[in-house]
Design a protein around this nucleic acid. Structure first.
Lengths: 342, 342
DNA sequence: TCATCCGGTTGAACCGCTTCAAAGTCGTCC
DNA sequence: GGACGACTTTGAAGCGGTTCAACCGGATGA
């Protein structure tokens, strides 16, 4: 059987002091006399004592962790957000626990529940956008939360860091229109993803302002490279006069997939089909044809989101009134060869 | 101030049953009479009770979590490994906590300590390869661990899932030699990273077998796209007769960076410089010039690693003798345009 | 000499849950 | 009618820490 791990009282016994003193050495070393402290420290290292964070948290009621729920950990956009979050959290002595909801609402809610059960200080969440039952869960549990890359409507106030996806969609399509494209396809889905819906709304708005321009919507089952490739198959199957001359993809993974599909089908990018992606992940610039994309401040989203969250947590702890804030960033179009040629 | 969250005893009081009964409803519903169970369930939902996992864990001594320490969360290779791990863990009712060590030994050890403090069931770790103090930490704490993508030497037996990096390096360079390249550069670093060291050893072995072939080692500060670009700058600065005709990059991120750098400097790939990467991340195939790469079974590494870990945990729990295993996968060369042209 | 003060140290009371021996409660069976 | 199981439910003892009022003994000041 597993030997029991040394506990604080084993340390106390070995050092010949009381339990409380050991705890003090661990948490408030300055109140302990130097000689006592060194005795305790010797005992700690001789036993290989490792503080039990679980017990510590239970008795103190404090938790150092914050939860981060991302839509898709395979998307570099989210790992960049995570990095930003980690950075800030580490500075403030907090720990980030990360969970991947794989754009699935049930998984998303399960992850939030997991975090609530762990009694994390707060939750940073990039929601899928459909079912927002988790908001009610968190509210009820009194867990502070900040929404990333989205503002959830109809659930009352909350903090958020977001990038204006509607504007981003407009930017992308306006860029294509300006290059003379009139038949444009929007590739992305499912439309329950708020990201997809908003970017599309922006795209439509831009198209409507231009006489003679049309937007063909190609829905995908997910925002992945594979789905992008599949969409390219669909596009390639269309007749030359019928096929859109440009694609606005809901994110860079899809855009890269479309690009790969085009290469396979012998469609030239951008001559036969121009492509704009979204997120401007690092790999976009390194693609077969460097990808034009709508840039979001990825790490900055994570950083700012964490700061808002920690502020809300602090306010709650101190019983201070907290005013919810929404930090909104403006996206920016980065034009590369996939639209403007070489 | 924050209102206290409902506890199990609040539920018990409201339902008019004892504490133990509520616990039974939560953990062994079948032993509770249906009528009692529904009373308790009603109380739970009316109070919005969420089980405190911290307390549960402390008193039961069981933890559902396993820790995963990755080298670089920005590298899609590791997110794929993480996905494989999540998959298996979820099937077995375990939860994966992920931490990024950013290839830094201090962060790596801090992450391991964090997990030990949390009393996770076990740790899955992709080590940086230099300092292995964390092995001693885990051994002492009695925490089972499995090493991913590496076998740590000189620390006694342990479970591992690995891909033979030496062979991978040989494969890559043998491929280049076979294509007629004789001046080859190895780009990667720091050499304290075991991945880097082993791949390089393999590369050297292959070169030594070929008369007249040479290997120029270009060390980078990290395995990132940026560092790859910088290496390309160095290569581009060399005279035409002096410059290697092929590059073997220690991973795909570096390879993509080298590729971008070549494009910028007007070097044609593969005509002027052939490139082989390592890992075969999804983005490799979508690169400017589709990247030849040494493929590792990414998700499979995560899956198998988690299975080994769970097996070891189970053995420890049941007091059964556990025999450490090393699951070794064989890498595979995927040749694409970056070496074999169009 | 005695009251105060103060840096150190102590130990008991939790934190919220699991566990499990013991105690009910019924329906059966001899 | 009493013993015996099968089912349920109970309640108290931890799990390993944190917290904090109380205590201790020596220094200080009056």
């Amino acid at each position: 059987m597993v030997p029991r791990r040394p506990s604080i009282s084993d340390v106390a016994a070995l050092a010949g002091v009381s339990l409380g003193t050991v705890s003090n050495v661990l948490n408030r070393p300055h109140v302990v006399a130097a000689s006592t402290r060194s005795k305790v420290e010797a005992a700690i290292s001789s036993l290989g004592f490792v503080r039990n964070e679980t017990a510590r948290q239970l008795s103190s009621g404090h938790n150092r962790a914050i939860g981060l729920v991302v839509l898709d950990i395979g998307n570099p956009f989210f790992t960049d957000v995570a990095r930003g979050a980690q950075e800030v959290a580490q500075d403030r002595g907090a720990v980030v626990l990360m969970a991947d909801s794989r754009a699935d609402e049930r998984t998303e809610r399960a992850n939030v529940e997991l975090f609530t059960q762990q009694r994390v200080q707060g939750v940073l969440i990039a929601p899928s956008g459909g079912d927002t039952a988790w908001v009610a869960d968190l509210r009820r549990a009194g867990t502070p939360f900040v929404v990333i890359d989205r503002v959830v409507s109809g659930v009352g106030e909350h903090c958020a860091v977001s990038v204006d996806d509607r504007t981003g969609g407009e930017l992308a399509v306006a860029h294509l229109l300006q290059l003379g494209h009139r038949r444009i396809a929007f590739v992305g889905g499912p439309s329950t993803l708020a990201q997809v819906a908003d970017r599309r709304v922006g795209a439509e708005a831009a198209v409507e302002r231009e006489a003679g321009a049309s937007l063909l919507a190609l829905s995908t089952g997910a925002l992945t490279v594979d789905e992008g490739r599949r969409a390219a198959d669909t596009l390639a199957a269309l007749g030359d006069g019928e096929r859109p001359t440009a694609v606005f993809a809901a994110n860079d993974l899809v855009a890269l997939g479309v690009l790969q599909g085009c290469v396979r089908h012998g469609l030239r990018v951008p001559a036969d089909l121009a492509i704009v992606g979204y997120d401007d992940i690092d790999f976009a610039a390194a693609a077969a044809v460097p990808l034009s994309s709508v840039r979001q401040p990825r790490q900055e989203l994570g950083r700012t989101g964490t700061e808002l969250l920690l502020a809300e947590i602090a306010a709650q702890r101190d019983g201070v009134e907290h005013v919810h804030r929404t930090e909104r960033f403006t996206p920016e179009l980065v034009a590369r060869a996939s639209t403007v040629g070489h």
